[in-house]
């Protein structure tokens, strides 16, 4: 009974037989456990990150790393927090990429090709080499979304680029000097604001809130006794799970 649990915060649990390998951090040799991510291996070696480390979970774009592996001429790119070290890996982190960000007022812009020409004119210089796509640690079809932007298809471009973490590796590698991650950000916001239809039911609810419709109900909950509050909590009507009955209506309607 009573299984024991090893808890070690964020420090890796390393079984005693863990293999050690050599990596080269900015050219200098270090021995690190073979099972670690690049990020934890660099820490293992004794570094404390200031740049090049953010969420540690593959979503913030702070830790893109350029590396080569043994006997391979190919330049590879991965997130340090998501890529496991390999024996003989040469690596450097590139935590910042210089790029221009166009300043704009979202309400004044329109989702047109002209807007792209105005804010990110270099986009049209794309030579379709696909280097950006190969550089993307999120496996986004970068060149494809650039093609959609050039055609003025904001919807497709927004959808194709939706998992962008804005690490900037596309722009760092682009021979035509595009700033893919920034133009995509512009396109997504324009799509969200001007192309996706507005939620009408939300407008209605906002109006009700601004008219203080719900304040008396909320005040009522603040004033009733603890027992009464618990009772109301327990007797909430439970909306059925969405596999069935999209037309469900609650019986209690006076608080809606």
């Amino acid at each position: 009974m009573s299984a024991e649990l090893k808890q070690s915060g964020d420090k890796p649990n390393l079984p005693p037989d863990t293999k050690m390998i050599e990596v080269f951090i900015m050219g200098k040799r270090y021995k690190v456990p073979a099972t670690l991510t690049i990020q934890k291996a660099i820490e293992w070696a004794g570094f404390q990150f200031l740049r090049g480390c953010g969420c540690r979970g593959g979503i913030c774009g702070a830790c893109p790393t350029i590396y080569r592996t043994k006997d391979d001429y190919k330049l590879k790119i991965g997130l340090a927090c998501q890529t496991v070290v390999e024996d003989g890996m040469y690596l450097v982190q590139l935590p910042f990429v210089p790029a221009q960000k166009s300043e704009y007022h979202i309400e004044d812009e329109r989702p047109t090709i002209a807007a792209i020409e105005k804010h990110y004119p270099e986009t049209f210089r794309c030579v379709q080499c696909n280097t950006c796509t190969k550089a993307c640690p999120m496996d986004i079809e970068v060149m494809q979304y650039i093609a959609e932007i050039i055609k003025g298809d904001y919807k497709k471009a927004a959808e194709l680029s939706s998992s962008c973490i804005m690490c900037g590796m596309c722009a760092a590698r682009c021979p035509a000097e595009l700033q893919q991650f920034n133009v995509a950000m512009f396109v997504r916001r324009m799509y969200g604001r001007h192309v996706l239809p507005k939620a009408e039911h939300l407008q209605k609810r906002v109006k009700e809130i601004n008219e203080n419709k719900y304040i008396p109900f909320l005040d009522e909950l603040g004033e009733i006794s603890h027992d009464e509050l618990v009772e109301r909590y327990k007797s909430r009507e439970w909306q059925p799970e969405p596999y069935e009955d999209p037309n469900w209506q609650p019986k209690e309607t006076k608080y809606l």
Partner: peptide, 20 residues
Amino acid sequence: PLVIEWLESLGMMFDKEKDG
């Protein structure tokens, strides 16, 4: 709901049905 409307107006890509 005010916050959700604010984020929508800033161009956030919420998951929506076809009619918004």
